[in-house]
């Protein structure tokens, strides 16, 4: 399906867990399948407690780690058959820890210019300026180092970097988790702007169902490496026979 943004089919991933004298396999993803963005951009969230495999899923879709079995396709094309540069304009990732997201030894400018390796400099600066404007950042940040910024600002810079390649999908792995409430709201606003103004789909990974509910209609709930529910809030609330969903919903209603 060449018009579908993202297709994940029967994804299986195991980790080796070393024990005293043996290596045990630990099943992180146990047959994940879903589609997103048929004929249009689509934002959705993936909800799950820590250790349920949601970050593993994100990193696999981002092409950062290998998987054992299954398929991941962007626009009908397997991620393994994309050239690295081509794949970079397919998807980008925003990470949980803004303090580790930018190389402390590089000016923001140098980090940003990495997106334009081999391209014309003037053109690169034009795109950078444009992106900064749209994310509400000042051009003065380019000559500064990461340590001169707060966590919220760094996350905003990391988001701006993820936009430079004009990707179709941004994977945001708990982008609010280490921020204060003010910065959380700021980042949420930026994400809704990105969706509206850039037409980019966002896959938000979170453990907080109330953030997910505010963020997008569609939610995918994961537990123990499996998808246990997929749909809007009402669909999920209807699946209360699952223990994890029951806990999520009751936590929400408190």
């Amino acid at each position: 399906m060449a018009n579908t943004l993202l297709e994940v089919k029967n994804l299986i991933k195991t980790y080796d867990r070393e024990e005293f004298f043996s290596t045990k396999k630990f099943l992180a993803l146990d047959g994940i399948s879903f589609c997103a963005g048929e004929n249009t951009s689509e934002s959705f969230s993936v909800i799950g407690s820590s250790g349920c495999g949601k970050t593993t899923l994100a990193k696999i879709i981002a092409g950062l780690i290998e998987f054992d079995f299954g398929e991941v396709k962007f626009f009908g094309k397997n991620i393994k058959s994309y050239a690295p540069r081509e794949f970079a304009s397919m998807t980008q990732m925003v990470f949980q820890n803004p303090y580790a997201s930018l190389n402390p030894k590089l000016k923001i400018k140098s980090s940003f210019l990495e997106a334009f390796y081999g391209a014309q400099k003037d053109e690169a600066y034009k795109i950078i300026e444009d992106t900064l404007k749209k994310t509400g950042l000042d051009a003065g940040i380019l000559d500064k180092y990461p340590h001169q910024f707060s966590g919220g600002q760094r996350q905003r810079i990391a988001i701006a970097r993820s936009l430079l390649k004009k990707p179709k999908l941004i994977i945001a792995d708990e982008p609010f988790a280490s921020l204060d409430v003010y910065s959380q709201n700021m980042i949420t606003d930026i994400f809704s702007d990105i969706r509206k103004n850039f037409g980019i789909s966002i896959m938000l990974i979170t453990h907080d169902i109330s953030i997910a509910k505010r963020f997008a209609q569609r939610m995918i709930v994961m537990d123990g490496g499996k998808i246990v529910a997929d749909g809007n809030y009402d669909d999920i609330a209807g699946a209360k026979e699952n223990k994890y969903i029951y806990d999520l919903i009751s936590a929400m209603e408190l």
């Binding site: 998807t91 990470f95 970097r161």
Partner: peptide
């Protein structure tokens, strides 16, 4: 990881 995603 972010730089890897930019195909550095």
């Amino acid at each position: 990881l972010a730089s890897r995603m930019l195909a550095v």
